[in-house]
């Protein structure tokens, strides 16, 4: 599958023709709508809120935010930013309710601290991994974006960013940039290992433990059906530094793993590994 991110900049790729195509395609509309619904489910907003839509495009997801019924916690007021003028032009013609900004997310988020209750971004942040000119770098754009987003969300706020990572390296790069900015971050994958995999980066800003739940993604997905939690983080101090005694069996196995990762030939671990030899006399 071709990735437009590989060939052109976002504002060049989405010209008048592409923007119109994107907005009139019923397939894209359906996918966008279901992803927005999923993102809303993850945000779990109970009352009308102020939401930032990053990479709002023609306002496909924003429309869903403003049309939400009071029973579902809506209607929300949203502010959208996008780098493509053509997309915003289509949004204007479709008469969306949110406020629109022509802005590049890689240049930061120009709102004062604690503005938004939540933020969503549908199929946008993978564009951050491209830098079109020599004076910006993907890392710089990512850090400016996540720092700005972190500041503009209120304490306890959440952001859900659906994105299409090119590969695992890109996934990791985006997630670690978010963590560096201070977010509690986690990835939710719908339909993993299929062609239709959808990756959601769920970000929480400190103090999200409103109802005794965890403040990170494990708290967010708690109670959701069909979600398996894979927690790769280190548990407590057991794996912490300074705990393993030098020369012990655990230490030896750790060293062997280290060497194996380096590509050295290592003897297989057995029940005799790390044992003392018997006394000879």
């Amino acid at each position: 599958m071709s990735r437009p991110e590989d060939t052109l900049a976002a504002d060049v790729h989405y010209d008048d023709v592409e923007a119109r195509k994107y907005t009139t395609s019923s397939r894209i509309k359906n996918i966008q709508a279901s992803m927005t619904q999923r993102a809303l489910e993850l945000l779990d907003l109970s009352s009308p809120s102020l939401i930032l839509d990053v990479g709002c495009g023609s306002g496909l997801s924003g429309e869903i935010l403003s049309d939400l019924s009071p029973e579902e916690g809506g209607p929300h007021v949203w502010v959208g930013m996008d780098v493509s003028g053509s997309m915003l032009d289509v949004a204007l013609q479709r008469d969306v309710e949110g406020d629109l900004f022509l802005a590049d997310m890689g240049q930061g988020v120009p709102f004062r601290a604690g503005t938004f209750d939540a933020a969503i971004s549908i199929s946008a942040i993978q564009w951050l991994c491209n830098a079109e000119s020599s004076d910006t770098s993907p890392a710089g754009r990512l850090s400016r974006f996540f720092n700005g987003l972190y500041a503009s969300l209120k304490r306890g706020g959440r952001a859900v960013c659906q994105f299409y990572p090119k590969n695992d390296a890109q996934k990791k790069m985006i997630t670690s940039a978010a963590v560096k900015a201070g977010f509690g971050a986690g990835l939710l994958e719908d339909d993993p290992e299929t062609k239709n995999v959808k990756v959601y980066l769920v970000l929480t800003v400190g103090g999200g433990a409103t109802s005794g739940k965890g403040s990170d993604i494990t708290g967010v997905v708690e109670g959701m059906e069909g979600v398996d939690v894979l927690d790769n983080r280190r548990k407590g101090k057991s794996a912490g530094r300074g705990e393993i005694k030098k020369g012990s069996k655990i230490w030896i196995i750790k060293k062997k793993e280290q060497m194996e990762r380096k590509g050295k030939i290592v003897k297989a671990t057995s029940k005799f590994t790390g044992r003392k030899r018997r006394v000879q006399f």
Binding site: L88, L100, F101, L102, D104, Q107, G108, R144
Partner: peptide, 14 residues
């Protein structure tokens, strides 16, 4: 313009 504010900055200001 038409209700849309332009917040694109030249790169030396970012």
């Amino acid at each position: 313009r038409e209700g849309i504010a332009n917040f694109l900055l030249p790169s030396h200001l970012v």
